[in-house]
Write a protein that binds this DNA or RNA. Structure first.
Length: 219
DNA sequence: TTATAGATTGCCT
DNA sequence: GGCAATCTATAAT
């Protein structure tokens, strides 16, 4: 299977300073960046096409709303670190911490456009590999959705929670100077509190954005 | 100690 | 479109 690929030679991790800002700003600017997982000698990577911003005490939908706990401690730590939690008894979700130490805030990764290691992603997701070049409907099952993208990249709480995403370890976010294109904001999905705040950011027209038609028919 | 809701997904009709 | 699966954090006894 052919990987779309990306130019890793000119890609570099984002600095802690990048994440040391309002999550809304970080979320918008994370679109178009590349989430990279080292899997043995292979690279698994996906371009970030959909994220959500979560704030601190003033955001009732945020895990950090009630203050620091054993689970959400990473959110109150320094910016640029992975916050991984387990949800609905089935899925892991990946966030990156924002704001300086002591202040909570994060960005949730909701969908990626797979660019490298697609064959391994099919394996990790427990999907059978398409015989021919995969269709969009097959590819969307890999990394469209917060629970799916963590499974495709093998991200778990035990393995990745608290990891520094600004160093090139086995999990990092790279900037390859790709232009994200037009960004659309919508209400966050799957939450009941503060459900009207437009804190979901997607790349307009990108086919890997979650939802039925968002990003596909709408340009 | 027990109950319940949850930043989801996949399979059912 | 509806709902079960299945763990954990937090609220309620």
């Amino acid at each position: 299977m052919r990987d779309p690929g990306f130019d890793i030679t000119c890609a570099r991790p984002l600095s802690h300073r990048f994440y040391d800002r309002d999550p809304r700003r970080v979320a918008r600017e994370l679109l178009g960046k590349v989430l990279v997982r080292k899997h043995g000698r292979k690279l698994l990577a996906g371009r970030i096409v959909e994220v959500e911003a979560y704030m601190g005490a003033n955001d009732p939908a945020a895990h950090a709303a009630a203050g620091p706990t054993a689970r959400n401690l990473v959110l109150f730590g320094p910016p640029g670190f992975a916050y991984v939690y387990f949800i609905y008894g089935n899925h892991y979700c990946l966030n990156v911490s924002c704001m300086s130490e002591g202040k909570a805030g994060c960005v949730l990764f909701r969908a990626l456009e797979p660019v490298a290691g697609l064959a391994q992603m099919f394996v990790a997701r427990g999907l059978s590999m398409p015989e021919r070049e995969p269709r969009l409907t097959d590819l969307r099952l890999l990394t469209t959705g917060p629970g799916r993208l963590t499974q495709a990249l093998g991200i778990t709480r035990a393995r990745d929670n608290g990891k520094d995403l600004t160093t090139f370890s086995d999990l990092t976010i790279l900037d390859d100077s790709c232009c994200a294109g037009r960004v659309v904001t919508t209400p966050r999905t799957g939450i009941t509190k503060a459900a009207d705040a437009k804190l979901r950011y997607v790349i307009a027209g990108n086919p890997f954005v979650s939802g039925k038609s968002e990003g596909r028919s709408q340009k």
